[in-house]
């Protein structure tokens, strides 16, 4: 259990991994916007090509990429089927008509577009963020990106990021602790592996209570340790690592803008089908 890495981070030194985490957050948002701008077949082809490029640039094995798509496969299938059967197009575009089922060209294209769009959404967020950025870098990036909000609206950005950091830091500690408690309860005759769902869930109550109690102790100790090390919130705090945007970050940003402009222009290309 000690070797667990939280999140889905895949260690590598690909171009995508080396981008500034702040830039990756921005790029992920822009990419999602791009995927919603797409309205024509040509634009969706561009989106699909860019997704494949992004995967190649992140150096993540195809097997792992597909694994990230798998959980939402059902959603993709249901939404695309609904589109195929429910979308009503122009009468001259009727493809199949059988009893009460009418399938139009528009429906088929809409279904395909939705599959591509959802695929791009998942790839965009996972390739830019979870797979290529450690959770801690992500937290850090969000803190720095949102820090203007602290000045403008007095939002507790630093405090929120600190909470996230501490939560991430203590996950492995609590996993260890839970292991120990489970062993201790097993040695007292606790049975975790039989009975129905409710019985099994109930069996975990004697694990959760000691875990909760220990979390309180840890919190008090940690608060003392932080006070001893002069922690007084985000004001006046400096950082050891200073994130600096490098040329490659600007290049990546430029490419993303190009994709956005390209998608908008491609929306006017009357190729196959335009929404």
């Amino acid at each position: 259990m000690k070797s667990i890495t939280f999140g889905q981070f895949y260690p590598s030194s690909s171009p995508m991994h080396r981008l500034d985490p702040r830039m990756k957050v921005i790029l992920a948002i822009l990419y999602i916007v791009c995927s919603f701008l797409c309205q024509s077949t040509a634009a969706f082809i561009a989106l699909l090509v860019s997704s494949v490029l992004i995967i190649l640039l992140s150096n993540i094995p195809a097997k792992i990429v597909l694994r990230s798509v798998r959980p939402i496969l059902i959603i993709i299938m249901i939404t695309s089927l609904i589109n195929v059967f429910m979308v009503k197009g122009e009468p001259e575009n009727l493809l199949v008509s059988w009893n009460f089922i009418n399938i139009y060209t528009e429906g088929v294209f809409n279904a395909i577009f939705i599959v591509v769009r959802i695929f791009a959404l998942v790839i965009g967020s996972s390739m830019f963020l979870t797979y290529t950025t450690t959770p801690i870098m992500l937290t850090d990036a969000i803190e720095r990106l949102l820090s203007p909000l602290h000045k403008l609206f007095k939002l507790k950005v630093h405090e929120f990021a600190m909470m996230m950091t501490i939560a991430l830091r203590f996950i492995p500690t609590f996993v260890d602790e839970a292991d120990k408690i489970i062993s201790a309860q097993k040695s007292r005759g606790m049975d975790f592996n039989s009975g129905g769902l409710i019985k099994r869930a109930k069996a975990f109550v004697p694990v959760l209570i000691p875990l909760f109690a220990s979390a309180y102790h840890k919190a008090i100790d940690l608060a003392t340790a932080m006070e001893c090390r002069c922690y007084r919130g985000g004001d006046g705090r400096t950082r050891m690592t200073v994130l600096k945007l490098k040329p490659r970050d600007f290049v990546a940003f430029l490419f993303m803008l190009l994709l956005g402009v390209g998608v908008v222009l491609l929306n006017r290309v009357p190729f196959l089908y335009v929404m």
Partner: peptide, 19 residues
């Protein structure tokens, strides 16, 4: 276990001076 704040050793050592 209860007095290390950061997820990387050097980041934790930096916690005090950062404050």
């Amino acid at each position: 276990d209860n007095q290390i704040v950061a997820t990387i050793v050097e980041e934790d050592v930096a916690f005090g001076p950062e404050n």
